[in-house]
Design a binder for these strands. Sequence first.
DNA 1: TATTGTTATACTCTATAACTATA
DNA 2: TATAGTTATAGAGTATAACAATA
Lengths: 160, 160
Amino acid sequence: MQNQNDLETRATESDNQELKLWLRLLTCSNLIENRIRSYLRIEFETTLPRFDLMAQLAQEPKGMKMGDLSERLMVSNGNITAITSQLEKEDLIVRIVNKDDRRSTFIKLTPKGKRQYTKMAKAQGKWLEQMFDGLSPTSSRSLYKSLADLKKRILLNDEQ
Amino acid sequence: MQNQNDLETRATESDNQELKLWLRLLTCSNLIENRIRSYLRIEFETTLPRFDLMAQLAQEPKGMKMGDLSERLMVSNGNITAITSQLEKEDLIVRIVNKDDRRSTFIKLTPKGKRQYTKMAKAQGKWLEQMFDGLSPTSSRSLYKSLADLKKRILLNDEQ
DNA sequence: TATTGTTATACTCTATAACTATA
DNA sequence: TATAGTTATAGAGTATAACAATA
């Protein structure tokens, strides 16, 4: 654990606070993300983007438009089409024509998809619990709040 | 800015604090990362992994072993070989045989690579400054510290 | 035998641009 | 004309496993 060498090793004392913050943020994020990707592959033979898409749908029982998914997942339209087609082939989601506007398509989880997602979400909860085990609730809350500030900042600064 | 829909939209009140924290962390990280990738592509015709590799080398004027780079960047050995070959083809880095152990290879920045990296690092500093502009130093420090706790936790929990 | 890096392979994600159909 | 999604294309990154050279 001491002498852990990672992305942050690149930063020196004299570097900007912004750079240090970013490298640490990225290191944490990568650590967690790599583990989750690995677990998803090993335990469920799936990938993070597929899981993320299903997670969004799980929140919207009536389904979502593909364009909205593209926005939420911050990826391109063509990308959503590709992942949707994969999941549909495995009967985890279905496409539904939107009768009000025949250009757009709704997609939603199938019963099989729901069952599958429920299992994965439960597992993800456990993985995270295990990874974060021992982190004080105070620390966790404070982090959660500070990240909200950061996020707001980034989005605001992007609008100009 | 209000009604921003993103990865976090998936989390509900009743979800675990761990999940919420993770989604927010990932959202922030993705926001920043996507912008940096985009800037690197547009302004320098390069990619984040290539930039990250050069950033590590910039810290070690005598060069680094490829295996150590693999560890620091948290990617596979074959991956380092691939990126190294690309950068070497563009004269940004060179491979150097290690005379003490002829199995291993050192790589380091060329003068051209150093110049290129300096420019990119300066630009990255500006991008980050702009993205984080308005974030209070207190908030930034607190975030930096909390992330250290989180990182330590993850690494400790992984050792068992 | 173990380690370092290479090679070959394969797969996923990703964006872009041209396209179709609908509005 | 504009919009939603599809298709075709291309490219990057990634891991894995078999391999060669060296220790």
